[in-house]
């Protein structure tokens, strides 16, 4: 990362996170795609001066991928810590992104770590790790997908301090786009206005709302010299939908904004 991450607070989340960290509590972050969940965790890790291990969860993720496994070396087999175990030992933030994508039985290994015990039993080596005092567990997911087969077990959810994220307000988002892409305020305002128009289509014509991330991409492309309309079409309209009619409507909207 090198230079410091500039994170603009949406409303109290920094304070809550700090308190959770001070009390050794794990944190759950909910929010739509591209609204700044990962960015927030990275920024907080920097403020708390702890390393962060990010694991992008997928449905093939096994407990061994988190905890660790035996490998074969020149001297025979040896134990290799997984990212979770490493974070527990070193005192880092372990961030499980899109945790609902992992199978439910996988997330159960988190349970003893996420309550007052703060331990990680390593079944295969017989070790019982007591978490470092700087260890912190953070998980995130997007509740908007309405997926029946995925979701957190109530017993998992209830071990976390939960934060709910949404897309920032107009003014904040303008500030964020300006800052991230280094563009003029006027351009950022137009982009945010466009995003707000597109967000009204969520549920009706679009499955997902236009994210702040998409705006920043578009702003960056414009900044580097691409015409505004082309940038918006390829960075905002096309990623949002495949439907020709919806795409046509979005292009008309972009035309109205630039």
């Amino acid at each position: 990362m090198g230079n410091s991450i500039n994170y603009i607070e949406q409303g109290g989340e920094v304070e809550i996170f700090k308190h959770a960290a001070a009390n050794f509590l794990p944190v759950l972050i909910k929010g739509p795609t591209g609204c700044g969940k990962t960015r927030f965790v990275e920024a907080m890790a920097q403020r708390l001066n702890r390393p962060v291990y990010t694991i992008a969860c997928h449905d093939d993720l096994t407990a061994a991928d988190l905890v660790g496994r035996h490998l074969i070396g020149a001297e025979g087999t040896y134990w290799q810590d997984g990212p979770l175990t490493r974070a527990v030992r070193e005192g880092a933030i372990c961030y499980l992104d899109e945790v609902v994508e992992a199978r439910k039985d996988t997330t159960v290994v988190l349970h003893p770590l996420a309550d007052h015990r703060r331990i990680l039993p390593l079944e295969r080596t017989g070790e019982l790790l007591q978490a470092h005092s700087d260890f912190m567990l953070v998980i995130s997911y997007n509740p908007g997908y309405q997926n029946m087969l995925k979701g957190l077990k109530p017993s998992t959810r209830q071990r976390f301090v939960a934060l709910s994220f949404d897309y920032p307000s107009k003014e904040l988002e303008t500030e964020i786009v300006c800052q991230e892409a280094g563009v003029e305020v006027e351009l950022a305002q137009q982009l945010v206005l466009l995003a707000q128009a597109l967000r009204r289509l969520k549920g009706h014509d679009l499955e997902e709302a236009a994210s702040t991330r998409l705006l920043i991409y578009a702003a960056m492309m414009i900044k580097s010299g691409l015409p505004a309309k082309d940038a918006c079409i390829s960075c905002i309209a096309e990623p949002l939908t495949d439907e020709a009619e919806t795409l046509g409507a979005i292009c008309q909207l972009i035309d109205a904004h630039f």
């Binding site: 289509l201 009706h204 919806t246 046509g248 409507a249 979005i250 008309q252």
Partner: peptide
Amino acid sequence: DQLAPYYRALG
């Protein structure tokens, strides 16, 4: 088909 989303998006 394009007018309806356009109208909704603009509020």
